[in-house]
Simulated assay, not measured.
Amino acid sequence: MEILAFGVQADERPLIEAAFAGHHDVHCVDVFLSEDTVPIAAGYEIVSTSVNADLGAKVLRRLAAGGTRLVAQRSTGFNNIDLDVAHELGLTVARVSSYSPYSVAEFAWTLAMAVNRRIVRAAGRTRDFDFRLDGLMGRDLRGRTAGVLGTGKIGEAFTRIAHGFGMNLLGWDVTENPACAALGMRYVGKDQLLAESDLVTLHVPLLPATHHLIGAAELASMKDDAILVNTSRGGLIDTDALVGELRRGRFTGVGLDVYEAEAGLFFLDKSLDVVEDDTLARLVTFPHVLVTSHQAYYTHEAVSQIIDATVRNVADHLAGRRGENTLVPGAPPPAPN
């Protein structure tokens, strides 16, 4: 079976090829699936996509018309997929339901510590042999309050690290996590969490109900010297409202690994282009804001687990099984001749 994998990073390629070796032929391309690139998939029964792929109605219809029967997305989130249209077309859609939560939790802490201790500014200065400390003062986190929005596996991993720092713990979720409660976390309403937390971190999926979970009112309710971190999905934060608060001099630091309009930007080299996104251009000018390119998941362990799950998803499809990662079961594959 030939498989086409879209949006494959250079570090991923040998891992993907090794995982499928001896079972299927996999053709890896670094372009992302979109209306412009979907013709490449013609003739491939199985297509694997990355997190920023366009899997809206038009692309799905083109995939189905070209013979694709399985879309195997190499991510947990699936807000980019029109599942209703996939069901209508009889396409099978699978995702990766989980991978190393430590990859994202540890990176969230990396962002938090970097903006708190002004690491990027300090590193830039020392490269110019400027060793002054002016403007580099951070804060101890011990005894301060960490607010965790979303206490699933990643939120729990973040909470364990916060507990190690000696922080007070507030949580918000539809279901309380006993492991977090055992660490001393108090579950409170979102408004209380935002008002009382010195560090706010987001670990919830992007759904219609969570779009702009942190909007203008929520940002206004946070402490002026709070730290805000988002390693989940960009659409959880109203970025225009965030820029407005930053222009007013609020927040000690903001660490963003995701951005709500990142498709077409993140994972690509735009260094020689004129970036027309005024909001992002303004965001990266603030000295206490750190934006990274959706790399929180990008550890050897996590990527290997994502690829292994994708291999299982392909095997389930070919065997006519509905696995734990199946979002849309689709029509069974044709019987071999």
Rank of each mutant, 00 (worst) to 15 (best):
G138L: 01
G138Q: 03
G135P: 13
L133F: 08
R117D: 10
D130V: 09
F129I: 04
R118P: 05
G124C: 03
G155H: 01
A146Y: 13
G152R: 04
G152M: 07
G143W: 14
G135W: 13
T159W: 07
T151M: 05
V148G: 02
R118N: 13
T159L: 11
T126I: 12
F129N: 07
D128V: 05
F131I: 01
I154A: 05
F131V: 01
R144S: 12
A146T: 11
A146R: 06
T151A: 04
T145E: 05
D128K: 14
G135H: 15
R125E: 06
R117I: 08
L133T: 08
L136A: 13
A146F: 15
F131M: 00
A122N: 02
R127S: 07
R132F: 06
A123H: 15
D130N: 15
T126A: 07
V115P: 00
G138W: 02
G143H: 14
R118Q: 13
R144P: 06
R139H: 12
M137G: 04
F129S: 06
K153D: 13
G143L: 12
G150S: 05
R127M: 07
D128E: 15
G143M: 11
L133G: 08
F129T: 04
M137L: 12
R117L: 11
T159C: 13
G135Q: 13
G138D: 02
T145D: 06
A146M: 15
V120C: 05
F158W: 05
R139I: 10
L149C: 05
T145L: 04
R117W: 07
I119P: 03
E156H: 13
G155N: 03
R144E: 09
F131S: 01
N116W: 01
R132E: 09
E156N: 09
V115K: 00
D140C: 10
R127W: 04
L136F: 13
N116V: 08
T159G: 11
G147W: 01
D134Q: 14
R139Q: 13
L149Y: 00
G150W: 00
R117P: 08
T126M: 11
G150P: 01
R142E: 14
V120M: 05
V115W: 00
I154F: 09
G124P: 04
R121P: 03
V148L: 10
V115L: 03
K153L: 12
I119E: 07
A123E: 14
F158K: 01
G124M: 04
R127G: 04
T145W: 07
G152N: 09
R125K: 15
E156K: 05
G152D: 08
A122S: 09
G155W: 01
T126Q: 08
G124D: 09
G138S: 05
G152C: 11
D130M: 10
R118M: 10
D140G: 11
F129D: 06
G147K: 02
